[in-house]
Nucleic acid binder design. Structure first.
Lengths: 253, 253
DNA sequence: GTTAAACGTTTCATCTAGTAAAACAAGTAT
DNA sequence: ATACTTGTTTTACTAGATGAAACGTTTAAC
């Protein structure tokens, strides 16, 4: 093995670490299965990471991310362009629409919220950094719509779970919606994930023009009529554009 | 090597990862030196981590944390008790004192801000999650004061760098202050780190009674007279107590 | 303008150190 | 009571990671 600078067990350790992050509450056997590792190998690697506080065992023998990961992750946030550039843009958008806004990206086959801004008004939608959502329902569809067709095939299940009444029930209907999102350049979701909630999402592109994140505005339905929604769409897509430019994107709509 | 479930290269990889987090802008050689690894070993491990987006190289050949760390870290934040429990307490404290508050912990020989809350008033102190500060000056001293004497010895330099006029200049003076902080149970810092800025810090204890974090309130000096400061001290120490209890601490002052 | 030091990169023979497999104990459901 | 789980431990084997030393380039020194 010449010229391949790869330390296998280190790679596997990180595979395992990702699996721990994506499957909270899993034990050795399940994690080994998810990563395709031998049970004993997974066991040793987890032990090693536990010693360094990278992962920690809960009392019931399942694994979660450890304290050292917290520090590493916080440092990563402050070093990453995406977050650094997005924060002021999100705060500005939040102030303009006076609603909760978030930034989401893809991890595995899920959308994950990586940053947010909330207005100080009393009644607002609550957002959680770190929360994961399936990609095939509600405004996360915007993130999915701009990925490769192979990835889309993989993410949209044959029989989508019905999350609320407004969720499209068939695979075909979802794929059709994705096409429409691509065409119009943003995504509106009315009560798909949660009743009485409207959200608008717009894609963030990087220098290579691929969509790496989406900007979302989420608002209570009762105070979001057509004209308010127009306003939200304009400002949200605009914020996504500004972030794209900051990330080096040079294309146009 | 019987009964030692430790995969050495994985351990070293994480040592290296910590070094990358703590020394942004360092290259292979420097990172190898900091971790005590061979240059070629460090090189291969970094390559491995780069492939998985755990670290990334900047154009000038130095390393930083990569995109995968961002996801892992955000997930860690949302899974960690400390952050989950602290967030509402910080927000409550922030609202009561109407000033910027933060939560800090120790990483290596530095204090790092791991959470914050800012009031919406126009003039406020700005805080950055992820920012690092030396432990021996200003309100971070509160975090240092409650550590083991061996650790303290290690952190307080023989000739402390003067940060502003109000920084104690000698090792002895700093050690003396640490004793006072331990005695009174909190720490006040007037213009030590930045002129025109007052801060108050109080220790957060965990179930084992060790101090794992500190709650800080930072305010502009011009609007913080003695009576306001009294108020801040009371609320800050109270918030630290509430967080300690939430973490399982059962002792008393 | 020459020299020297420092850096990232590459190679390769050596042998440590990580691995797979299988057996184990402890628990849980049937 | 039995048959699955689960996490844990052992062992022999050799794949694969390692240290050292050399390489070409860049940066600093004088």
């Amino acid at each position: 093995m010449v010229q391949d600078y790869n330390v296998e067990s280190v790679g596997k350790a990180f595979d395992l670490l990702m699996a721990v992050a994506r499957n909270p509450g899993a034990g050795v056997t399940e994690l080994a299965r998810k990563t395709g590792l031998t049970k004993s190998r997974a066991y040793r690697l987890l032990h090693t990471m536990e010693q360094r506080q990278i992962v920690k065992r809960t009392s019931d023998g399942t694994y979660g991310l450890g304290d050292a990961m917290l520090i590493l992750g916080i440092t990563a946030s402050s070093q990453t362009d995406m977050i650094r550039l997005a924060t002021p843009i999100l705060e500005d958008l939040c102030q303009r629409v006076n609603e909760t806004v978030q930034l989401r990206t893809i991890d595995g086959t899920e959308a994950i919220c990586i940053a947010k801004a909330e207005p100080s008004r009393d009644l607002r939608v609550h957002a959680n950094v770190g929360r994961r959502r399936p990609l095939y329902a509600g405004s996360p569809k915007c993130l999915l719509a701009f990925q490769s067709s192979r990835f889309i095939e993989e993410c949209v299940p044959l029989t989508p779970a019905a999350i609320t009444n407004n969720t499209p029930r068939t695979r075909g209907a979802i794929l059709q919606e994705l096409t429409r999102i691509r065409r119009q350049g943003y995504c509106i979701s009315r009560g798909e994930v949660s009743d009485h909630q409207v959200s608008c999402a717009a894609p963030v592109r990087t220098i290579s023009a691929s969509v790496v994140a989406t900007v979302h505005t989420v608002a209570p339905a009762f105070r979001t009529g057509d004209s308010e929604l127009e306003h939200i769409i304009r400002l949200t897509t605009d914020a996504a554009h500004r972030l794209s430019s900051a990330l080096g994107w040079t294309g146009d709509a």
